[in-house]
């Protein structure tokens, strides 16, 4: 008898199979593990979102702005915080927006719904992937900040900013999920960019916003995440630095947390309702 013929194909012959208590966790863990692996193997996703934040931070945030500001020590933590916010936006929005739209359109999501996959496993796996990617991006930025920018930021501040950014990236996951639940695979990157680019620029991450546009920064979720991090780093915003007004008065942390939570819940719930209908 071969090994193959000794194998029982159907559980009909073994009706006493009990559902192991760790079954859902095994499914969650395996789904998350392979979501991370597939993201690392997707060059269009992994290369830009892992390497570009640190490359731009070093070139622009450390060397270019450092030389333009004549070594102003107030600029260094601001640059770190701003590029950190930028670094965690992309994986959340594109990771959800592009992958979900493609998998929905190609029927993978429908197949998973038919299979006994735990309901939340699909989204939790993508969230885990985004958070791990965000943490990896933060690690590269921190290394650059410590060894190249010699930023005066304490270990505790680095850790806190990392936690805030990684958790805060869930807002961008929710926006990406919303787009992915509605857009076609071909149009999803365009729609994600339509949300991502204005959100990034309106948050005032790279340059001082003109006075006329400044009120618009309040509509960008990235602005609130950045404000939280500036608060932790006790750093000034770019607007405040440009006006030479010293450390800016940041938006209240509780307000920032509330806005990010509301954004996450609203987009997450809308996307979940849509996906439940479509499969």
């Amino acid at each position: 008898m071969t090994a193959a013929s000794a194998t029982t194909l159907s559980s009909e012959l073994n009706p006493q199979v009990q559902v192991p208590s760790d079954l859902p966790w095994r499914a969650y863990w395996t789904e998350a593990k392979y979501e991370v692996i597939r993201a690392c193997r997707a060059p269009a996703f992994a290369i830009p979102f892992f390497s570009l934040p640190v490359v731009f931070y070093v070139l622009v945030g450390i060397f270019l702005v450092g030389s333009m500001s004549h070594g102003d020590p107030r600029v260094i933590p601001t640059m770190f915080v701003n590029w950190a916010t930028f670094g965690v936006m992309g994986p959340g929005m594109f990771g959800f927006g592009m992958f979900v739209a493609t998998e929905r359109e190609q029927g993978l999501l429908r197949l998973k719904r038919a299979l006994p996959m735990p309901t939340a496993s699909y989204v939790l796996a993508k969230m885990a992937m985004t958070m791990i990617f965000g943490a990896a991006v933060m690690a590269t930025l921190i290394l650059a900040a410590v060894f190249l920018a010699h930023a005066r930021i304490t270990l505790m501040q680095y850790l806190l900013i990392t936690v805030i950014d990684v958790v805060g990236s869930l807002s961008f996951c929710a926006i990406g999920l919303f787009i992915g639940s509605r857009a076609s695979a071909k149009s999803a990157p365009a729609f994600v960019n339509l949300a991502y680019l204005p959100m990034m620029h309106l948050a005032g991450l790279f340059y001082p916003l003109p006075k006329s546009i400044q009120p618009l920064e309040f509509i960008s979720p990235a602005f609130y995440l950045n404000q939280l991090n500036l608060h932790v780093a006790r750093a000034a915003s770019i607007d405040a630095l440009a006006l030479a007004s010293g450390p800016s008065s940041h938006a209240r942390p509780l307000l920032c947390i509330a806005v990010l939570t509301i954004v996450t819940l609203c987009f997450g719930i809308l996307a979940a309702r849509r996906l439940k209908r479509l499969g």
Binding site: R38, R41, L108, L111, P116
Partner: peptide, 24 residues
């Protein structure tokens, strides 16, 4: 299913391990 693309970046063994994790 007739039309269901699987995760393109995963290996065949990994695809099976993933789906197998849903079953007791």
């Amino acid at each position: 299913m007739q039309e269901a693309a699987l995760v393109p970046e995963l290996r065949v063994r990994e695809q099976i391990e993933l789906v197998a994790s849903y079953y007791p």
